[in-house]
Simulated assay, not measured.
Amino acid sequence: MPAYKLMYFDTKGRAEVIRLAFAAAGQSFEDKRFPLSMEEWQAVKPTIPQKQLPCLQVDGRLIPQSGAIMRYVAREFGLYGDNNDENTRVDVIIGTAEDFLKNAFALRYEKDETKRAELKKDLEENKLPQFFSLLEEILKENNGGDGFFVGKKISLADIMIYDITDQVGAAAKLPAFPPKLGGLIDRVKNHPKIKEYLAKRGD
């Protein structure tokens, strides 16, 4: 079995969905977190592909790009669906999530307080309800919405949507979840291995 080392900063950010995927798989990994002071990271940066984090080390091989890493981990541990149709369904949900995340990132990086307030209001009143409604419809296409986004078991799609609601919820007021989506979020949180990880994470 390879040794896995995930390198990122000491925050959730783009690495948390990868940490959650490792947790769901029951796979141990070294969770290397560089202090946000950046000094240690600046010393290591020249040795990292594309000079950015997150980066996953698999034995001696380094994999950059958060999207590539999360898909690698999902494929490696059976979190990417059982056939091409299911793989594609996971990709559709990831793409839908990434479209939405552009709005969340715009809020995170906006420095002007007036513009930030406008973006936050639009996120809470328009973008989040639209996103949740879209996810509800996608979820209902599989087992009436009473299971997971893909097939009959948890996948990267479920983990990513849970992580987005968790992280965005720390920065903005979430609207009420539609019923099926709310049920899914609870199932992900209560997945035994994820529940154990979240208890250790402590928030």
Results as ranks from 00 to 15, higher is better:
2 P>I: 06
5 K>H: 02
6 L>Q: 10
8 Y>G: 05
9 F>A: 05
10 D>M: 06
11 T>F: 06
12 K>C: 01
12 K>V: 10
13 G>K: 08
14 R>E: 04
15 A>F: 11
16 E>R: 07
17 V>G: 14
19 R>I: 08
20 L>R: 08
20 L>F: 09
22 F>Q: 09
24 A>P: 01
25 A>N: 02
26 G>E: 02
27 Q>M: 05
29 F>C: 12
29 F>R: 13
31 D>M: 13
32 K>R: 12
32 K>L: 15
33 R>G: 01
33 R>K: 07
35 P>Y: 11
37 S>C: 07
41 W>G: 03
42 Q>W: 04
44 V>N: 10
45 K>V: 07
46 P>A: 06
47 T>C: 02
48 I>P: 02
49 P>S: 12
49 P>R: 12
50 Q>K: 12
50 Q>E: 10
52 Q>I: 01
53 L>T: 04
54 P>Y: 09
54 P>R: 08
58 V>R: 14
62 L>S: 12
62 L>H: 09
62 L>F: 04
63 I>V: 12
63 I>C: 13
63 I>F: 12
63 I>R: 13
67 G>R: 14
67 G>D: 15
69 I>A: 03
70 M>H: 06
70 M>N: 07
70 M>Q: 08
72 Y>K: 01
72 Y>W: 07
75 R>A: 00
76 E>V: 04
76 E>N: 05
78 G>Y: 00
79 L>A: 11
80 Y>C: 03
82 D>K: 11
82 D>I: 00
82 D>L: 08
84 N>C: 07
87 N>P: 03
87 N>T: 05
88 T>Q: 09
90 V>P: 14
91 D>Y: 06
93 I>L: 04
93 I>D: 05
93 I>V: 01
96 T>E: 01
96 T>S: 05
97 A>D: 10
98 E>G: 03
101 L>I: 07
102 K>T: 14
102 K>N: 13
108 R>H: 13
109 Y>K: 11
109 Y>E: 09
109 Y>N: 06
110 E>M: 12
111 K>G: 10
112 D>N: 01
113 E>H: 13
114 T>N: 14
116 R>P: 11
117 A>P: 09
117 A>Q: 14
119 L>P: 05
119 L>H: 08
120 K>H: 08
120 K>L: 10
123 L>D: 07
124 E>S: 04
125 E>F: 02
128 L>N: 07
132 F>S: 04
134 L>E: 14
136 E>I: 09
137 E>C: 10
137 E>M: 15
137 E>G: 13
138 I>T: 03
143 N>C: 15
146 D>N: 13
146 D>C: 11
147 G>N: 13
148 F>N: 13
149 F>C: 04
149 F>Q: 10
152 K>Q: 14
153 K>S: 00
159 I>S: 09
163 D>K: 09
163 D>T: 11
164 I>F: 00
164 I>M: 01
166 D>F: 11
166 D>L: 13
168 V>G: 03
169 G>V: 05
170 A>Q: 14
171 A>M: 15
173 K>R: 00
175 P>S: 05
176 A>S: 07
179 P>I: 10
182 G>W: 12
183 G>M: 09
185 I>Q: 06
186 D>H: 14
187 R>H: 15
187 R>S: 15
188 V>P: 02
188 V>T: 01
189 K>N: 08
191 H>V: 02
192 P>K: 08
193 K>H: 03
194 I>Q: 11
195 K>V: 00
195 K>G: 04
200 K>P: 12
200 K>D: 12
201 R>L: 04
202 G>W: 10
202 G>V: 06
